[in-house]
Amino acid sequence: MLTPALCLVVQGAKWTMFGDRRFDYRAGQALVVSVEIPSLSQIVAASPGEPYLAVAIVFDLTTMREVLESLDTPPKVDGDVCQGVFVIDIGSQLAACVLRMIRLLDTPQAIGALYPLLMRELCYWLLTGPHGSDIAKMTVASSHTQRVISAVHNLRERFAEPVRVEELATSARLSPSAFHRQFKALTSMTPLQYQKQFRLLEARRLMLSSAMNAETASYKVGYESPSQFSREYSRMFGLAPGRDVAAFRSQVA
């Protein structure tokens, strides 16, 4: 479950799936995520000699909003919902800023004083970059994007309950058809796909962290039929629940 963040690859390569969309990114690129969203990922370029290296920086949306308001020429924020996920090339200014962030780990006593300044710099380069408009829409409370994001949060918090799309559309002040279209533009999946993937990821977490069996986990996340849960779990993860959990534990044992 990814949160709004900049996921920058330093070495190697990776792909991440959101619904039916796949994003490939490698060293010198970053995945930008603007909304909490379920995903599947796989590292595709790594070796003992050159391991996969990456850094994920969670966005501070309050700082992002402050920087946006301070710009002399802020990016245009139109009525369309933003791209919820996209890949960017890392320019030299952004790379230097991230490197300074990482180097703060060597001097923990300086993090409190300097990290907020570096976060402001990071927000500046993102807002003034090629995807500045999409970044800005994350912070503008009156935008369609923010209303759809609020509906996403509502769906996430009530993921185990039956939720009607019409109800979510009303909360976003959109017609059902417009809400469905903008939700998919933001998350790369429909509301029902989002709920299903969230349920399956949560069930997997429960089985791995709490030793919960598949049937109990399926009821816990909102399924009424364990057999339906097993079928959908197998389609998402490639193995039936019990076999998947056993395989994961054997790898980390």
Rank of each mutant, 00 (worst) to 15 (best):
250 S>G: 11
199 R>I: 14
141 A>V: 05
165 V>R: 07
218 S>K: 00
248 F>S: 04
110 A>Y: 12
132 G>C: 15
9 V>T: 10
156 R>F: 10
210 S>W: 04
39 S>R: 05
111 I>N: 11
128 T>K: 11
75 P>H: 10
63 T>F: 15
35 V>L: 05
69 E>F: 01
4 P>R: 01
61 L>K: 11
228 Q>V: 09
58 V>C: 15
223 Y>G: 10
59 F>G: 12
206 L>I: 13
164 R>T: 08
72 D>M: 06
168 L>V: 01
185 A>I: 05
243 R>C: 08
62 T>H: 14
90 I>C: 09
9 V>I: 15
51 P>K: 01
95 A>E: 07
127 L>A: 12
23 F>H: 02
118 L>T: 12
39 S>K: 14
169 A>Y: 06
100 R>E: 13
168 L>A: 05
10 V>Y: 15
14 K>H: 00
218 S>P: 00
25 Y>R: 06
104 L>E: 08
174 L>T: 00
95 A>C: 03
146 Q>N: 04
249 R>Q: 08
234 S>D: 05
219 Y>R: 04
97 C>W: 14
221 V>A: 00
124 Y>W: 09
33 V>C: 06
224 E>L: 13
156 R>W: 06
241 P>W: 02
115 Y>F: 12
219 Y>H: 00
87 V>T: 03
193 Q>Y: 01
71 L>A: 02
234 S>C: 07
77 V>Y: 02
4 P>N: 08
199 R>S: 09
185 A>N: 01
89 D>E: 12
143 S>R: 13
209 S>L: 12
88 I>W: 11
134 D>E: 03
19 G>C: 06
96 A>H: 06
184 K>D: 07
233 Y>H: 03
20 D>W: 02
52 Y>W: 02
159 F>K: 00
6 L>I: 14
110 A>D: 10
7 C>G: 11
227 S>D: 14
60 D>R: 10
47 S>Q: 04
156 R>E: 15
48 P>Q: 11
52 Y>I: 02
11 Q>R: 06
161 E>Q: 01
97 C>I: 01
55 V>P: 11
115 Y>N: 13
